[in-house]
Simulated assay, not measured.
Amino acid sequence: MSIRHGLLALLESGPRHGYQLRAGFEEATGATWPLNIGQVYTTLTRLERDGLVEALPENDGGQRPYRITERGRDEVALWFRTAVGRSERPRDELAIKLSLALVTPGVNVTEVVQRQRTATVRTMQEYTRLKRAEADLPSLLVVDALIFQAEAEIRWLDHCEATILRRRRTTSSKDRSTDSSATTAEGLVP
Rank of each mutant, 00 (worst) to 15 (best):
M1Y: 08
R4L: 12
H5G: 00
L8Y: 08
L8T: 14
L11G: 01
E12A: 04
E12F: 08
G14M: 04
R16Y: 05
R16E: 02
G18K: 05
Q20P: 04
R22T: 00
A23T: 04
G24F: 08
G24R: 11
E26S: 00
E27Y: 10
T32N: 13
N36S: 00
Q39K: 12
Y41M: 02
T42K: 08
T45Y: 12
D50K: 02
V53A: 05
E54W: 00
A55H: 06
L56V: 02
L56P: 00
E58Q: 02
E58G: 09
E58A: 03
N59R: 05
D60F: 11
D60N: 09
Q63K: 13
R67S: 09
R67P: 06
R73L: 11
R73M: 11
D74S: 12
V76I: 13
L78I: 06
R81V: 10
T82H: 03
T82F: 04
V84S: 13
R86F: 13
S87L: 15
S87G: 15
R89P: 00
P90K: 04
R91E: 06
R91L: 11
L94M: 07
L98E: 00
L98S: 05
A101Y: 05
L102D: 05
T104N: 07
T104E: 15
V109E: 15
T110W: 01
V112M: 10
Q116K: 09
R117I: 08
T120S: 06
R122V: 03
T123F: 10
E126R: 15
E126M: 03
K131S: 10
A133F: 03
D136W: 12
D136K: 13
L137H: 03
S139R: 06
L140G: 12
L141S: 08
L141E: 12
L141G: 02
A145F: 11
A145N: 07
L146S: 13
Q149V: 05
Q149D: 15
A150W: 03
A150G: 07
E151K: 09
E151T: 11
W156Q: 14
W156C: 03
L157C: 09
H159I: 05
H159Q: 14
C160R: 13
E161Q: 15
A162S: 15
T163A: 15
I164C: 03
R166W: 05
R169G: 00
T171I: 11
S172M: 13
K174I: 06
K174R: 09
T178C: 04
T178G: 09
S181K: 13
S181D: 06
T184G: 02
V189I: 14
P190N: 06
